[in-house]
Amino acid sequence: MAAVTDPIAAAPRRRADSHRGLVFILLAPVLAFFVVFNTIPLLWLLGLSFHNFSLTSGMPPEFVGFQNYYQLWLGRNNFWGDLSRTFTFVAVGVTIQTLLGVGLGLLFWGSRTMPGRRIALTLLFAPMVLTPVATGTFFRFIYDPNFGVLNQMIQGLGLPMVDFLGSPATAYWAVLAVDCWMWTPFMILMTLAALGSVPKAELEAAEIDRLPFRKRFTLVILHHGKFILMLGILLRVIDSFKTLDLIIPMTKGGPGQQTRLVAVELNKQAFESFNMGFSSAYAVYLLLVSIAMTSVFIFVLNLRRRRGS
Protein backbone atom coordinates (compact mmCIF):
# COMPACT_ATOMS: atom_id res chain seq x y z
CA MET A 1 0.00 0.00 0.00
CA ALA A 2 2.66 2.43 1.07
CA ALA A 3 4.71 1.50 -1.96
CA VAL A 4 2.03 2.79 -4.28
CA THR A 5 1.47 6.13 -2.59
CA ASP A 6 5.06 6.87 -1.72
CA PRO A 7 7.10 7.51 -4.86
CA ILE A 8 10.38 7.34 -2.97
CA ALA A 9 9.66 3.95 -1.48
CA ALA A 10 8.58 2.87 -4.94
CA ALA A 11 11.87 3.86 -6.52
CA PRO A 12 13.26 0.61 -7.84
CA ARG A 13 16.69 -0.52 -6.76
CA ARG A 14 18.00 -0.39 -10.31
CA ARG A 15 18.02 3.40 -9.99
CA ALA A 16 21.18 2.97 -7.97
CA ASP A 17 22.76 0.87 -10.70
CA SER A 18 21.89 3.16 -13.58
CA HIS A 19 23.46 6.11 -11.78
CA ARG A 20 26.40 4.31 -10.29
CA GLY A 21 28.88 7.07 -11.08
CA LEU A 22 26.75 9.80 -9.57
CA VAL A 23 25.99 7.78 -6.45
CA PHE A 24 29.67 7.15 -5.99
CA ILE A 25 30.56 10.85 -6.30
CA LEU A 26 27.84 11.82 -3.85
CA LEU A 27 28.85 9.22 -1.30
CA ALA A 28 32.61 9.41 -1.71
CA PRO A 29 33.35 12.19 0.81
CA VAL A 30 31.31 10.64 3.61
CA LEU A 31 32.66 7.18 2.85
CA ALA A 32 36.22 8.46 2.85
CA PHE A 33 35.64 10.11 6.21
CA PHE A 34 33.97 7.00 7.50
CA VAL A 35 36.80 4.69 6.50
CA VAL A 36 39.58 6.95 7.80
CA PHE A 37 37.96 8.02 11.04
CA ASN A 38 35.81 5.05 11.80
CA THR A 39 36.55 1.75 10.14
CA ILE A 40 40.33 1.89 10.47
CA PRO A 41 40.31 3.17 14.07
CA LEU A 42 37.73 0.57 15.02
CA LEU A 43 39.82 -2.26 13.60
CA TRP A 44 42.83 -0.76 15.34
CA LEU A 45 40.88 -0.76 18.59
CA LEU A 46 39.81 -4.34 18.10
CA GLY A 47 43.34 -5.47 17.37
CA LEU A 48 44.76 -3.60 20.31
CA SER A 49 42.24 -5.12 22.70
CA PHE A 50 44.05 -8.46 22.28
CA HIS A 51 47.37 -6.91 23.27
CA ASN A 52 49.06 -5.83 26.41
CA PHE A 53 50.11 -2.30 25.56
CA SER A 54 50.94 0.58 27.83
CA LEU A 55 52.11 3.89 26.43
CA THR A 56 54.09 4.67 29.57
CA SER A 57 56.18 1.51 29.57
CA GLY A 58 57.74 2.13 26.16
CA MET A 59 57.39 -1.58 25.35
CA PRO A 60 55.90 -2.73 22.03
CA PRO A 61 52.41 -4.29 22.17
CA GLU A 62 52.46 -7.90 23.31
CA PHE A 63 49.78 -10.31 22.11
CA VAL A 64 47.83 -11.75 25.02
CA GLY A 65 44.68 -13.11 23.36
CA PHE A 66 41.50 -12.64 25.32
CA GLN A 67 43.29 -11.82 28.56
CA ASN A 68 42.07 -8.19 28.74
CA TYR A 69 38.49 -9.25 28.15
CA TYR A 70 38.81 -12.04 30.64
CA GLN A 71 40.26 -9.81 33.34
CA LEU A 72 37.49 -7.29 32.89
CA TRP A 73 34.97 -10.10 33.04
CA LEU A 74 36.52 -11.23 36.32
CA GLY A 75 36.06 -7.72 37.63
CA ARG A 76 39.48 -6.10 37.34
CA ASN A 77 39.30 -2.41 38.28
CA ASN A 78 35.82 -3.08 39.57
CA PHE A 79 34.37 -3.24 36.04
CA TRP A 80 31.04 -4.61 37.21
CA GLY A 81 30.85 -1.93 39.88
CA ASP A 82 31.27 0.78 37.25
CA LEU A 83 28.68 -0.86 35.02
CA SER A 84 26.09 -1.24 37.75
CA ARG A 85 26.69 2.33 38.92
CA THR A 86 26.17 3.48 35.36
CA PHE A 87 23.00 1.44 34.91
CA THR A 88 21.63 2.81 38.18
CA PHE A 89 22.54 6.30 37.02
CA VAL A 90 20.70 5.70 33.74
CA ALA A 91 17.67 3.99 35.28
CA VAL A 92 17.09 6.42 38.15
CA GLY A 93 18.00 9.51 36.11
CA VAL A 94 15.88 8.68 33.08
CA THR A 95 12.92 7.67 35.27
CA ILE A 96 12.97 10.97 37.14
CA GLN A 97 13.46 12.94 33.93
CA THR A 98 10.60 11.12 32.23
CA LEU A 99 8.14 11.55 35.09
CA LEU A 100 9.04 15.21 35.61
CA GLY A 101 9.21 15.84 31.87
CA VAL A 102 5.81 14.30 31.12
CA GLY A 103 4.27 16.13 34.09
CA LEU A 104 5.67 19.51 33.13
CA GLY A 105 5.03 18.82 29.43
CA LEU A 106 1.33 18.29 30.20
CA LEU A 107 1.40 21.49 32.25
CA PHE A 108 2.86 23.40 29.30
CA TRP A 109 0.46 21.82 26.83
CA GLY A 110 -2.03 24.67 26.73
CA SER A 111 0.54 27.44 26.63
CA ARG A 112 0.09 28.46 22.97
CA THR A 113 -1.30 31.87 23.88
CA MET A 114 1.04 32.56 26.78
CA PRO A 115 2.68 35.99 26.65
CA GLY A 116 6.44 35.71 26.15
CA ARG A 117 6.14 31.98 25.49
CA ARG A 118 9.21 31.87 23.30
CA ILE A 119 11.39 33.47 25.98
CA ALA A 120 9.95 31.26 28.72
CA LEU A 121 10.64 28.13 26.66
CA THR A 122 14.16 29.35 25.90
CA LEU A 123 14.83 29.73 29.62
CA LEU A 124 13.32 26.31 30.29
CA PHE A 125 15.30 24.58 27.54
CA ALA A 126 18.56 26.42 28.23
CA PRO A 127 20.12 23.76 30.53
CA MET A 128 20.41 21.20 27.73
CA VAL A 129 22.51 23.41 25.47
CA LEU A 130 24.87 24.65 28.16
CA THR A 131 28.48 23.57 28.03
CA PRO A 132 28.50 20.54 30.37
CA VAL A 133 32.01 21.29 31.59
CA ALA A 134 31.01 24.83 32.48
CA THR A 135 27.82 23.62 34.13
CA GLY A 136 29.74 21.05 36.16
CA THR A 137 32.35 23.59 37.21
CA PHE A 138 29.74 26.04 38.31
CA PHE A 139 27.71 23.47 40.19
CA ARG A 140 30.82 22.76 42.18
CA PHE A 141 30.56 26.38 43.22
CA ILE A 142 26.84 26.09 44.03
CA TYR A 143 27.42 22.86 46.01
CA ASP A 144 30.48 24.21 47.84
CA PRO A 145 30.28 23.49 51.59
CA ASN A 146 31.67 26.88 52.64
CA PHE A 147 30.35 29.56 50.34
CA GLY A 148 28.00 27.66 48.00
CA VAL A 149 24.52 29.08 47.73
CA LEU A 150 22.85 25.73 48.40
CA ASN A 151 24.54 25.22 51.73
CA GLN A 152 23.73 28.81 52.69
CA MET A 153 20.07 28.02 52.10
CA ILE A 154 20.28 24.79 54.08
CA GLN A 155 21.96 26.50 56.98
CA GLY A 156 19.40 29.27 56.75
CA LEU A 157 16.81 26.61 57.49
CA GLY A 158 18.81 25.64 60.55
CA LEU A 159 20.09 22.35 59.11
CA PRO A 160 23.70 21.17 59.30
CA MET A 161 26.10 21.89 56.43
CA VAL A 162 26.41 19.16 53.76
CA ASP A 163 29.51 18.58 51.65
CA PHE A 164 27.48 17.45 48.64
CA LEU A 165 30.30 16.48 46.28
CA GLY A 166 32.88 15.57 48.90
CA SER A 167 30.97 13.10 50.98
CA PRO A 168 30.49 9.54 49.68
CA ALA A 169 26.87 9.46 50.84
CA THR A 170 25.72 12.39 48.73
CA ALA A 171 28.14 12.76 45.79
CA TYR A 172 26.37 10.30 43.48
CA TRP A 173 22.97 11.84 44.07
CA ALA A 174 24.28 15.37 43.80
CA VAL A 175 25.68 14.58 40.34
CA LEU A 176 22.50 12.78 39.36
CA ALA A 177 20.45 15.81 40.42
CA VAL A 178 22.41 18.04 38.06
CA ASP A 179 21.93 15.52 35.25
CA CYS A 180 18.18 15.57 35.91
CA TRP A 181 18.16 19.36 35.94
CA MET A 182 19.95 19.41 32.59
CA TRP A 183 17.85 16.79 30.84
CA THR A 184 14.31 17.07 32.18
CA PRO A 185 13.78 19.87 29.62
CA PHE A 186 14.53 17.34 26.88
CA MET A 187 11.71 15.10 28.10
CA ILE A 188 9.44 18.16 28.30
CA LEU A 189 10.33 18.84 24.67
CA MET A 190 9.55 15.25 23.68
CA THR A 191 6.29 15.30 25.65
CA LEU A 192 5.20 18.46 23.84
CA ALA A 193 6.03 16.78 20.52
CA ALA A 194 4.12 13.66 21.55
CA LEU A 195 1.12 15.76 22.60
CA GLY A 196 1.31 17.57 19.27
CA SER A 197 0.90 14.24 17.48
CA VAL A 198 -2.45 13.49 19.14
CA PRO A 199 -5.33 14.20 16.71
CA LYS A 200 -7.49 17.08 17.92
CA ALA A 201 -10.73 15.33 16.93
CA GLU A 202 -10.07 12.43 19.30
CA LEU A 203 -9.30 14.77 22.15
CA GLU A 204 -12.54 16.63 21.52
CA ALA A 205 -14.44 13.37 21.39
CA ALA A 206 -12.93 12.39 24.72
CA GLU A 207 -13.90 15.79 26.07
CA ILE A 208 -17.50 15.33 24.92
CA ASP A 209 -17.62 11.83 26.36
CA ARG A 210 -16.43 13.34 29.64
CA LEU A 211 -13.69 10.79 30.01
CA PRO A 212 -11.84 11.27 33.28
CA PHE A 213 -8.33 12.65 32.81
CA ARG A 214 -6.65 9.36 33.68
CA LYS A 215 -8.54 7.53 30.96
CA ARG A 216 -8.00 10.34 28.50
CA PHE A 217 -4.29 10.11 29.21
CA THR A 218 -3.98 6.35 28.80
CA LEU A 219 -6.50 5.81 25.98
CA VAL A 220 -5.99 8.86 23.79
CA ILE A 221 -2.73 10.63 24.62
CA LEU A 222 -0.50 7.65 25.28
CA HIS A 223 -2.00 5.72 22.39
CA HIS A 224 -0.82 8.34 19.90
CA GLY A 225 2.14 9.79 21.74
CA LYS A 226 3.86 6.66 22.98
CA PHE A 227 6.27 6.25 20.07
CA ILE A 228 7.67 9.74 20.36
CA LEU A 229 7.92 9.31 24.13
CA MET A 230 9.64 5.97 23.66
CA LEU A 231 12.17 7.50 21.27
CA GLY A 232 12.78 10.25 23.79
CA ILE A 233 13.38 7.79 26.60
CA LEU A 234 15.72 5.73 24.42
CA LEU A 235 17.72 8.77 23.40
CA ARG A 236 18.07 9.70 27.05
CA VAL A 237 19.13 6.16 27.99
CA ILE A 238 21.81 6.14 25.31
CA ASP A 239 23.00 9.63 26.15
CA SER A 240 23.14 9.25 29.90
CA PHE A 241 25.08 6.00 29.45
CA LYS A 242 27.82 8.22 27.99
CA THR A 243 27.84 10.79 30.83
CA LEU A 244 31.34 12.16 31.29
CA ASP A 245 31.65 15.93 30.75
CA LEU A 246 29.46 16.72 33.70
CA ILE A 247 31.31 14.48 36.13
CA ILE A 248 34.89 15.44 35.33
CA PRO A 249 34.71 18.99 36.67
CA MET A 250 32.46 18.07 39.60
CA THR A 251 34.03 14.97 41.16
CA LYS A 252 36.39 13.28 38.63
CA GLY A 253 34.70 10.01 39.63
CA GLY A 254 35.31 10.45 43.34
CA PRO A 255 35.06 10.48 46.26
CA GLY A 256 36.46 6.97 46.19
CA GLN A 257 34.59 5.37 43.31
CA GLN A 258 31.24 6.90 44.16
CA THR A 259 30.62 8.69 40.86
CA ARG A 260 32.87 6.56 38.65
CA LEU A 261 30.70 5.75 35.63
CA VAL A 262 32.01 3.65 32.73
CA ALA A 263 32.92 6.64 30.56
CA VAL A 264 34.80 8.25 33.46
CA GLU A 265 36.79 5.11 34.20
CA LEU A 266 37.57 4.44 30.55
CA ASN A 267 38.74 8.02 30.19
CA LYS A 268 41.04 7.58 33.18
CA GLN A 269 42.43 4.21 32.06
CA ALA A 270 43.10 5.47 28.55
CA PHE A 271 44.25 9.04 29.00
CA GLU A 272 45.68 9.16 32.51
CA SER A 273 47.12 5.67 32.97
CA PHE A 274 47.64 5.05 29.23
CA ASN A 275 46.77 1.35 29.51
CA MET A 276 45.83 1.19 25.86
CA GLY A 277 45.32 -2.56 25.48
CA PHE A 278 43.19 -2.84 28.58
CA SER A 279 41.22 0.30 27.65
CA SER A 280 40.57 -1.06 24.16
CA ALA A 281 38.95 -4.17 25.58
CA TYR A 282 36.93 -1.94 27.89
CA ALA A 283 35.86 0.15 24.90
CA VAL A 284 34.85 -2.94 22.91
CA TYR A 285 32.56 -4.02 25.75
CA LEU A 286 30.97 -0.55 25.71
CA LEU A 287 30.72 -0.75 21.92
CA LEU A 288 28.65 -3.93 22.27
CA VAL A 289 26.32 -2.17 24.71
CA SER A 290 25.87 0.84 22.44
CA ILE A 291 25.30 -1.32 19.36
CA ALA A 292 22.58 -3.13 21.29
CA MET A 293 21.01 0.17 22.30
CA THR A 294 21.22 1.57 18.76
CA SER A 295 19.48 -1.56 17.47
CA VAL A 296 16.63 -1.08 19.91
CA PHE A 297 16.42 2.57 18.91
CA ILE A 298 16.17 1.76 15.21
CA PHE A 299 13.73 -1.07 15.90
CA VAL A 300 11.38 1.35 17.68
CA LEU A 301 11.86 3.89 14.91
CA ASN A 302 10.83 1.38 12.25
CA LEU A 303 7.88 0.34 14.36
CA ARG A 304 6.69 3.93 14.30
CA ARG A 305 7.32 4.31 10.58
CA ARG A 306 5.31 1.20 9.85
CA ARG A 307 2.35 2.06 12.06
CA GLY A 308 2.43 5.83 11.86
CA SER A 309 1.34 8.04 8.97
Binding site: I238, L244, L266, S279, L286, S290, I291
Partner: peptide, 16 residues
Protein backbone atom coordinates in the same frame (compact mmCIF):
# COMPACT_ATOMS: atom_id res chain seq x y z
CA UNK B 1 26.15 3.76 16.47
CA UNK B 2 29.26 5.97 16.38
CA UNK B 3 27.20 8.68 18.00
CA UNK B 4 25.88 6.27 20.61
CA UNK B 5 29.34 5.26 21.82
CA UNK B 6 30.86 6.87 24.94
CA UNK B 7 33.37 9.56 24.00
CA UNK B 8 36.57 7.93 25.31
CA UNK B 9 35.83 4.77 23.31
CA UNK B 10 35.49 6.83 20.12
CA UNK B 11 38.60 8.87 20.64
CA UNK B 12 40.96 6.14 21.89
CA UNK B 13 41.93 4.67 18.50
CA UNK B 14 41.85 8.14 16.92
CA UNK B 15 44.30 9.27 19.57
CA UNK B 16 46.71 6.45 18.70
Amino acid sequence: SVRMLPGPAVILPIYL
